[in-house]
């Protein structure tokens, strides 16, 4: 009964927040009634195929500025949260996230590199360097017999450091205008969102999330350990490989489209575990819904409160940390690993 209510909230919460997020922005507040009116007009337009007709200013703001930003924010939030949850399950380690395994900084370096030397698309470059980073992390921590969780986090930190250093070299080498772009972008920004960006990010993030959702039950098995998977007749190697690849893909696309948002992928999976328990069958969806909604709320907050753009990564930490500490203390999360 209570579980049903929670699941209902899981579905409704993002829809409601998505809708109301449209009313907020730097050009001013659009009332609920007006918003409903404009939405209804857009639907009518769509039905009567009169899309060629010119938009009013408000409509342009709503559908060309706010809506793509909202959609991109939601996708990025969902991607980072799901990626974090998946990595925590697979590596049986609640202190792992896309950041601590080196994926984020690898992807950031890849994206910055392609901003500086545009040989391959930013998305692809981010993905390749994200894969490279997590691959090196895994190889360094692989000791032959089994991979120690502590060694993995340690080597992840080292690899993160190395790619951050490379990123600094890139920044040092680039001219002031590109430097500004890279720095702003590494802080995590959403104000550059456009339908183009939404389109570029939709396929890798949407596809990756769908594939992870399809494999979600297997995450429970992997979270028990390699030996326990073998004990019931499943060779964990291939499926681990696929899932880590998918998590890297969605993280890299998120990083490529809005920059680095640190610790988001660590915090949200903990929140959804506290609310829904550790079962990944529901956890994957919980991470999508909570991750997307949470990042959207943070972005709404920064748009509503500040007259100018504050990088979203700043508020993620300032708002996320107290919430996380509160939930952690309240539930007395005690990891004895």
């Amino acid at each position: 009964m209570q579980q049903r209510l929670k699941i209902l909230l899981l579905v409704l919460m993002p829809l409601v927040v998505l809708f109301f997020s449209l009313s907020l922005g730097s050009t001013g507040y659009i009332g609920i009634l007006d918003l409903t009116h404009y939405t209804w007009m857009a639907v009518q337009r769509f039905w009567s195929e009169m899309l060629g007709e010119s938009y009013t200013d408000t409509e342009t703001i709503l559908w060309q500025v706010r809506l793509p930003r909202i959609l991109l924010t939601f996708m990025v939030g969902a991607a980072l949260a799901v990626s974090g949850g998946v990595l925590q399950a697979i590596f049986r380690n609640p202190i792992v996230d896309p950041f601590s395994l080196g994926i984020s900084s690898g992807a950031a370096f890849g994206a910055a590199l392609s901003m500086l030397i545009p040989l391959i698309p930013i998305n692809l470059s981010a993905f390749l360097f994200g894969v490279l980073a997590v691959g090196i992390t895994y190889l360094v921590s692989y000791s032959g017999v089994r991979t120690s969780l502590i060694t993995m986090v340690l080597s992840g930190m080292i690899i993160t450091g190395v790619f951050t250093a490379f990123l600094t070299i890139l920044q040092y080498l680039s001219d002031p205008y590109k430097l500004q772009a890279i720095v702003q972008w590494t802080m995590g920004n959403l104000h550059t969102a456009s339908w183009d960006k939404v389109q570029t990010a939709f396929l890798p993030i949407g596809g990756g999330l769908a594939a992870i959702a399809a494999l979600r039950w297997k995450l429970n098995l992997l979270a028990l350990g390699d030996q326990e998977a073998l004990a019931v007749g499943v060779n964990p190697r291939n499926i681990k490989f696929i899932i880590v690849g998918l998590a890297t893909m969605i993280t890299a696309s998120a990083v490529a489209s809005v920059g680095m948002i640190s610790l988001f992928g660590l915090i949200v999976p903990h929140i959804s575990r506290i609310v829904f328990g550790p079962n990944n069958q529901i956890g994957v969806f919980a991470n999508m819904s909570i991750g997307g909604t949470f990042l959207l709320l943070i972005d709404d907050f920064s748009r509503a409160v500040m007259p100018f753009e504050i990088p979203v990564g700043v508020f993620t930490m300032i708002l996320g940390a107290p919430l996380f500490i509160y939930l952690m203390r309240k539930n007395a999360v005690n990891w004895n690993a």
């Binding site: 399950a89 049986r92 380690n93 609640p94 039950w217 297997k218 429970n220 098995l221 979270a223 028990l224 350990g225 030996q227 326990e228 998977a229 073998l230 004990a231 019931v232 007749g233 499943v234 575990r273 328990g277 550790p278 079962n279 990891w335 690993a337």
Partner: peptide, 25 residues
């Protein structure tokens, strides 16, 4: 099927969910 001596898990899965993973193949 085999059962080893030592096992520890990180996440507090329910008993039902743990047993259900036995059907993963």
């Amino acid at each position: 099927g085999f059962m080893t001596q030592f096992h520890q898990t990180t996440f507090p899965f329910t008993v039902f969910d743990v047993v259900l993973t036995g059907r993963a193949a």
